[in-house]
Design a protein around this nucleic acid. Structure first.
Length: 673
DNA sequence: CGTCTCCAGGTTTTT
DNA sequence: CCTGGAGACG
């Protein structure tokens, strides 16, 4: 499609969409119900802006997930057939990185800073805690990590209850700075600080980005809102739907919609209420569910589509049965209706649900992609390699240095590390500085043998600094992996299973190949190590190219499914305790409303056909527990639903039940049978 | 002093 | 199943 003249737009869009696309100046709020063509409006809007001569460099579009950002960019490219070198489409966090890469020296960091993910953060907390004399029992790093995040983002303050961690927090912050590192929250918090303290820097960005657009606005946190507010003049378009706000646990607050009205006078509100996606049945089910929420903007989402087929609810016995039910149904429907596998979406509440489903797919030879879940980049072997890259990029990155200084084993143990650590503490320097200082000392602080071992490590890091600039990153990484003999390490570390070792090695191979693809991408004109590291830290999962996902069933969490749609959708594990999640139920009604929105999001992903399954039993840790169907199932108007009774093998079931109970009784005294 | 082995615990959702 | 930690062993 070449020109997007107004005639064409009028034909392609309904009147509200048309207004949203062509209102380019001034603040606008687009309330976009599920399936109302939101993505289409955003992409057309940007294409239209380019068409009327607004330079790419003045446009900033912010999203929440990398997937959404990539998809938006793709669509605009398709629509305009233009190169988009100067258009900024990115997640809030990635945009924060971009700014910090340019400006962070103003805040006292050096520009090759590392970004710490949750694991890194927790290691740093643990390390700092040990120095401050915390014992293992009052150092729950998981809990403390969350607390620190809440403190940093202003969601919590120090009170009598958590004061004991204040010093630890300060130590943590000092550690980040000493190691030239920032955490995820800093990616939003530090740019705000930067803008506040340096008006001239802020002005630079304000005058560059004249047109700002924010997708999924209901999921912005106060920080993100403030970030945007600082940058924006008046041409801001925010797009959202309060019914799809599902990130409040991360600080999202859809009250920002109200703030927006206040902070940007003259705002125009546009409502997109026609759903183009789903059948009348699916939409009515979704509306039935969401209407139970008390705290929402009333809206009337309607669809011009047919009523379609009823929603089917199944009650499999357990999660294994559920998985094979899903696999078999997909095979059957794909065959009968001539659908491709990528037209199916299987949605679940928690990543832990994926395993049995994946196994069923493997068994049935159904190709699938799983987004979310234990991230590729969280795998131990991948983290090891990446840690080398990080230390090469930033020698002062203690957390990553500790991770690899003795991996693969090279004879540098706890005691040696303790010497470095003491020196670093006394001299307020990083471990790397401590190591090089101590290596230079003639006296016998370090034994000659130790010195030799350390030198070996230092040589590896320093011998690879050429990675930082220049071409051929993937080749250099491959050489590095060989240089450190990682393959031998994998074999010795997985003595029982060479298969496991090979699997891990293949993961590394996959990593190297992805670096290769990345550096050969013509759009990527500066394929250096820093840029690579920035990119992957924000890539929480291996959400590979969409092209790779052609012909594969989409398995994902409901959170990850936002913004997507599939002709056929399965919602797995619709049980109380999973959705709504047990933790949310504990925390009160407000959280149940968020879970309901989550369920609403899940339902509205479906275009033609929706299956919901609720297991009667489910394995949780070691035990098998009885499940009750999700309370949300009762909120779907019954006339839309076809219930399938539990399979008729009752006698078998009962027998198993009795057996299980007997096993319980005998298990008590001894741990046998 | 470093390495290996065995054992317990598992953390909702994501950048 | 997989990871991290404690403690035994060489």
């Amino acid at each position: 499609m070449a020109a997007l003249d107004l005639e064409t737009l009028k034909k392609e869009l309904n009147p509200e969409q048309y207004r949203a696309v062509t209102t380019v100046d001034g603040p606008i709020l687009i309330i976009a119900g599920a399936g109302s063509g939101k993505t289409r409006v955003i992409t057309f809007r940007i294409a239209h802006m380019l068409d009327i001569g607004i330079p790419q460099s003045q446009i900033l579009a912010l999203t929440f997930t990398n997937k959404a950002a990539r998809e938006m960019e793709e669509r605009i490219k398709d629509l305009t057939q233009k190169k988009l070198q100067n258009l900024t489409v990115s997640t809030f966090h990635a945009f924060g990185v971009k700014i910090l890469r340019q400006e962070i020296t103003a805040l006292g960091w050096r520009e090759n800073f590392s970004i710490y993910d949750e694991t890194d953060r927790n290691s740093l907390i643990k390390e700092t805690g040990r120095e401050l004399g915390f014992t293992a029992d009052n150092l729950d790093v998981y809990k403390i990590g969350n607390l620190f995040s809440n403190i940093k983002c202003g969601r919590k303050t120090w009170n009598g209850e958590n004061d004991m961690y204040k010093q630890l927090y300060e130590g943590y912050q000092a550690g980040l700075k000493l190691y030239n590192a920032v955490d995820f929250d800093d990616l939003i918090v530090l740019p705000i600080k930067l803008f506040r303290e340096n008006p001239e820097i802020l002005q630079k960005y304000r005058s560059r980005f004249k047109y700002i657009m924010i997708d999924e606005f209901q999921d912005t946190s106060h920080q993100q809102y403030e970030f945007m507010h600082l940058l924006a003049d008046k041409n801001v378009a925010v797009v959202g739907d309060d019914d799809q706000s599902i990130y409040s646990w991360r600080g999202a607050d859809y009250q920002n919609i109200v703030n927006f009205e206040k902070d940007f006078p003259g705002m125009q509100e546009i409502r997109l209420e026609q759903n183009y996606r789903s059948t009348e049945t699916i939409l009515a089910a979704a509306n039935g569910v969401i209407s139970h929420n008390t705290n929402r903007k009333e809206k009337k989402l309607w669809s011009g589509n047919d009523s379609g087929k009823p929603i089917e609810i199944f009650m499999p016995d357990n999660e294994t049965d559920e998985a094979s039910f899903i696999a078999e149904s997909i095979q059957g429907i794909a065959m009968e209706e001539k659908l491709k596998y990528d037209q199916f979406g299987v949605l679940m509440r928690a990543n832990t649900q994926s395993r049995p489903i994946e196994e069923a797919f493997l068994e049935a030879n159904i190709p699938y992609t799983m987004s979310g879940g234990t991230s590729f980049f969280q795998r131990k072997e991948i983290k090891d390699v990446i840690s080398y890259l990080r230390v090469i990029a930033n020698h002062d990155d203690d957390v990553n240095l500790i991770r690899i200084i003795n991996v693969p084993r090279r004879g540098i143990g706890r005691a040696t590390l303790e010497i470095f650590n003491d020196y670093a503490l006394q001299n307020h320097c990083s471990l790397w500085t401590a190591i090089t200082d101590l290596m230079a000392m003639p006296d016998g602080v370090l034994s000659d043998k130790t010195k030799l071992l350390i030198q070996e490590f230092l040589d590896i890091i320093e011998g690879n600094t050429s990675m930082i600039s220049g071409k051929g990153l993937s080749k250099k990484v491959r050489n590095l992996v060989e240089e450190i003999n990682y393959w031998d390490y994998l074999i010795s570390d997985n003595p029982k299973s060479e298969k496991a070792a090979r699997f891990k090695y293949l993961n590394i191979e996959h990593l190297i190949q992805s670096i290769e693809t990345w550096e050969n991408n013509p759009d990527n004109y500066d394929a250096n190590l820093y840029n690579y590291l920035n990119r992957i830290t924000l890539l929480s999962r291996d959400d590979g190219d969409d092209e790779n996902n052609l012909g594969k069933v989409n398995l994902m969490t409901i959170h990850a499914s936002k913004g997507l749609e599939f002709p056929v959708v399965f919602i797995a594990g619709a049980e109380d305790g999973l959705i709504p999640h047990a933790r949310s139920i504990e925390d009160g009604e407000g959280n149940v409303e968020e879970e309901r929105r989550l369920f609403y999001v899940a339902i509205t992903r479906a275009r033609d056909k929706l299956f919901i399954s609720s297991c009667q039993k489910r394995r949780k840790m070691q035990a098998t527990v009885e499940c009750t169907p999700s309370r949300f199932l009762d909120e779907i108007p019954p006339n839309l639903v076809e219930y399938h009774e539990p399979s008729q093998v009752v006698s078998d079931d009962k027998a198993q039940d009795i057996l299980a109970r007997m096993a319980e009784m005998f298990k008590a005294p001894e741990d046998q049978i």
